[in-house]
Amino acid sequence: MNSIISTRFLNLYYNEFHALKGITMDIQPNTVAALIGPSGCGKSTFLRLFNRMNDLIDGVKITGDVLVNGKDIYADVLDVVELRRTVGMVFQKPNPFPKSIFENVAYGMRVNGITDNQYIAEKVEESLRQAALWDEVKDKLKKSAFEISGGQQQRLCIARALAIEPKILLMDEPASALDPISSAKIEELIWELKKDYTIMIVTHNLQQAGRVSDTTAFFYLGELVEYGDTKEIFTQPKDKKTQNYITGRFG
C-alpha cells in the first residue's frame, strides 16, 4: 500500500532534550490515525512535524526522514509555505483570528494569492457546510468570530483549515476544550471528513480515539510503543505499557 505519511527513524531534540526517539510509522490515505499517550510523551511534537511547526521553536534539531506523499518535507528545496497549504492543522483551543467569521475562512485563500471574490465566497460557504457550521452562522458572517460559542469557534477553525483544500488534517486535541455536545459534533465531522482527507488526531479521550480512528499509535516518553489497528490496540494490546495505559493504570 502507498502510505501518504511516513517517518523513518525519526529523532527530535529540544536542545539537549530528546523528545522523539527513533520513530518509524506509516499512515494510509483516507484514514484516521489517533495519537494517544500520557502528557508530555511527545504527541504534539510528533504531530507538528508534518507541517513543520516545530521549525518555529529555537533549538529544535531533527534527524531521520519525514515523508508526505513520498516527498521528504525537510529537504532543502521544499517550500514550507506550500507544505502548510497541503497539511492543515486544528489546534487544541479554538483560535480564530480577530476578524469576521467570513474573513476567518477566507484567510487561507487570501494569503495564498486567491483574489477572485466570488470563488472565495463559494468556497467559504462550502467549507462552512463541510464543517457543519453553515446553518448556524450564515446570517452573521460579518460578525466577529469571537462572538460565537467555543464549539462553534472550533468548527470555524476546522472550516478555515478545509478552505484551502489540504490533503491531510492534523488535529491536536480538537475537542478537549469543548462541552460534550460540541465534542460529539466534532467527532461526527471527523467521520465525514475521512472521505476526502487523511487525519491525524491527538486525544486524551480514549473512548474518542476508539470511536473515530482507524489506527492508533501509543506514545510513551518519546517512543512509539505500539501502533496498529484501533480495534486491536484497544482489545488486545501487545505491549504491557499500552495495556496499562488503556486500562487507566497510569497517564
Binding site: 509555505v81 494569492g113 486567491i114 483574489t115 483544500e165
Partner: peptide, 12 residues
C-alpha cells in the same frame, strides 16, 4: 480543486 495562483515569489 483550487487553482492557487503561484504568489510565492511576490509574497516573499
Amino acid at each position: 480543486m483550487i487553482k492557487f495562483a503561484d504568489n510565492r515569489a511576490s509574497k516573499q
